[in-house]
Amino acid sequence: SKDAAQYVYDEAQKGVTQVTVNGVTFKFDNWQKLLKYAQKLLN
């Protein structure tokens, strides 16, 4: 959902490398990768 994507995006902006959405945890090597993933979700 857009809300989940926005949440992931906001978390990535904080510099975190993992985020949990609806009980599913996504882990990334660095926050830039998390940010890229979030941007994909938002598009």
Rank of each mutant, 00 (worst) to 15 (best):
Q18W: 13
G15K: 09
Y9P: 14
L42N: 01
Y7R: 12
E11W: 15
F26V: 02
T17K: 02
L35T: 00
N43D: 04
K33H: 07
Q6H: 08
A12E: 06
Y9F: 12
V21M: 10
K36W: 10
N30I: 15
Q32P: 04
A12P: 08
V8P: 14
T25W: 10
V16M: 04
Y9L: 12
V8S: 07
V16L: 09
T17V: 11
L42F: 07
V21L: 03
N22I: 15
V8I: 10
Q13G: 07
K36G: 05
D10G: 10
N22Y: 15
Q18A: 07
D29T: 11
V8A: 06
Q18T: 05
F28K: 02
V21Q: 05
K36Y: 07
A12N: 06
K14Y: 05
W31G: 00
A12I: 11
K27P: 09
D29E: 09
G15F: 12
V19H: 06
L41Y: 02
T20F: 07
A38V: 12
K2H: 07
A5N: 07
Q13S: 08
L34H: 00
L35D: 00
G15E: 07
N22A: 14
L42I: 03
L35N: 00
D3N: 09
K33S: 05
L41R: 01
K33R: 09
T17E: 04
V24W: 14
A38F: 11
T17N: 06
G15Y: 14
N30Q: 09
K40P: 00
L34S: 00
D29Q: 12
N22M: 15
V19I: 12
Q6L: 10
G23E: 06
N43W: 11
A38K: 01
Q13F: 13
Y7N: 12
K14P: 09
Q32A: 08
S1H: 13
K36L: 07
K33Q: 06
D10Q: 07
Q32I: 09
F26P: 02
D10I: 15
K40I: 04
A38E: 00
N30D: 08
Y9V: 08
E11H: 09
T20K: 02
V19M: 12
A5D: 08
K40D: 02
Y9Q: 11
Q39K: 04
D3E: 03
L42W: 08
L41W: 04
K40W: 10
V19L: 13
L41F: 03
V16T: 03
D3R: 05
K2M: 11
D3S: 03
F26E: 02
T17Q: 06
G23F: 15
Y7E: 14
V24H: 03
D29W: 15
Y7H: 15
N22D: 06
K36D: 03
T20P: 06
V19F: 06
S1L: 12
A38T: 02
Q13A: 10
K14V: 12
E11I: 13
A38M: 13
K27W: 14
F26G: 01
K33A: 07
D29H: 13
L35H: 01
K36N: 05
V21G: 02
K40F: 04
F28P: 01
V19A: 05
N30A: 10
K27M: 15
E11T: 13
G15L: 14
L34Y: 02
Y7D: 14
D3K: 02
V24A: 05
Q13I: 12
K27H: 10
V21S: 05
T17Y: 12
D3A: 02
V21I: 12
L42K: 01
L41G: 00
Q32D: 03
Q18D: 03
Q13V: 11
Y7L: 14
D10Y: 11
T25D: 04
Y37C: 10
A12R: 05
K27C: 15
Q39N: 03
G23T: 11
K36M: 05
Q32C: 15
T25M: 10
K27L: 15
Q6G: 08
A12L: 10
A38P: 00
W31T: 00
F28Q: 01
L34A: 01
T20V: 14
V16R: 07
N30S: 09
G23K: 06
D10C: 15
F28G: 01
V24P: 03
Y37E: 01
A12D: 09
K2E: 07
V24C: 14
D3V: 04
L42V: 01
A38H: 01
L34Q: 00
V24M: 11
L34V: 01
V19Q: 07
L42D: 00
K27R: 13
Y37L: 14
E11N: 07
N22E: 09
A5L: 12
L34G: 00
D10R: 01
A5W: 13
T25A: 06
S1Y: 10
A12H: 06
L34D: 00
W31S: 00
T20C: 14
Y7Q: 14
T20Y: 04
L35V: 02
D10N: 08
G23A: 13
Q18G: 07
A4L: 08
N43R: 12
D3C: 15
F28A: 03
A4E: 09
E11C: 15
L34T: 00
G23S: 03
V16D: 02
Q6I: 06
V16K: 04
N43E: 06
A5V: 05
D10P: 08
V21H: 08
V24S: 03
N43S: 05
G15D: 05
K33C: 13
K36S: 06
K14I: 13
V16P: 11
A4G: 04
N43P: 01
S1E: 12
T25E: 02
S1V: 11
Q13P: 06
Q13N: 11
L41M: 02
L35G: 00
D10K: 05
Q18R: 04
L34E: 00
E11A: 04
S1M: 11
E11D: 12
K27D: 10
Q39E: 02
K27G: 09
V21A: 11
Q13Y: 08
Q6P: 02
N43Y: 06
G23D: 06
D3G: 04
N30F: 15
W31D: 00
G23W: 14
E11F: 14
W31K: 00
A38C: 15
A12K: 04
D10A: 08
